[in-house]
């Protein structure tokens, strides 16, 4: 079984991102379970969502405290909350940022870091606004390349199922993010 945690801020589409991942993985034949951190959401406040998937039915019905991988929708959260809490060594962190993945020197010794400027891609496709871009579809597209668990066909189908508006723009953002994402494997030293 694999477990993921997604960190975002209220309004970025964090919970829908976990659902999109679940639907894409389900379409690839996996058992899936996704859920938000159980609480009260406020726009702009830190939000977390979770995902489990496996090849057999998922028994665990409790929170995820030791994820295998992370997705971070707002890079300022890295300084604001302990995003790597419980993260398995060697796990992958996919971050929405314009920075080079190797520049995260505090993370690269223990984790694989992947980055994509999902905000820029989202804004360019008219998804949300410059101050409040909706980055979930772009990040799910990037996840397809980074993790390799599901293809773009599953991403497109998930978007068609779960995102009621701007279907083409969302699909295009996902495709572009899948191309644009960059990866620094665990242990790679920064030359920045």
């Amino acid at each position: 079984m694999r477990e993921l945690r997604i960190h975002g801020r209220g309004g970025q589409g964090t919970v829908i991102a976990s659902k999109l991942l679940a639907v894409a993985l389900f379409r690839e034949g996996h058992e899936v379970q996704s859920f938000p951190a159980f609480g009260v959401e406020r726009r702009g406040a830190p939000v977390t969502a979770f995902l489990r998937f496996d090849d057999s039915p998922i028994r665990l019905r409790c929170e995820i405290t030791a994820p295998n991988h992370l997705i971070v929708l707002d890079p300022t959260l890295i300084d604001a909350v302990d995003v790597t809490a419980g993260l398995e060594a060697g796990g992958t962190i996919l971050i929405n940022t314009d920075r080079d993945p190797a520049s995260y020197v505090e993370l690269t010794p223990r984790f694989t870091v992947a980055t994509v400027d999902a905000s820029e891609i989202a804004v360019r496709h008219g998804l949300g606004t410059r101050s409040q871009p909706i980055v979930n579809t772009a990040i799910v597209g990037a996840s397809s390349s980074v993790f390799g668990w599901f293809g773009m066909e599953a991403v497109e189908a998930a978007i068609a199922d779960e995102v009621p508006v701007k279907l083409e723009e969302n699909v295009e953002a996902a495709r572009e993010a899948a191309e644009a994402v960059r990866v620094a494997p665990t242990g790679e030293m920064s030359n920045v």
Partner: peptide, 12 residues
């Protein structure tokens, strides 16, 4: 049904 562990959890 349990709050959140079922009500807000997505599965097939």
């Amino acid at each position: 049904l349990d709050a959140f562990f079922l009500s807000h959890t997505s599965e097939p």
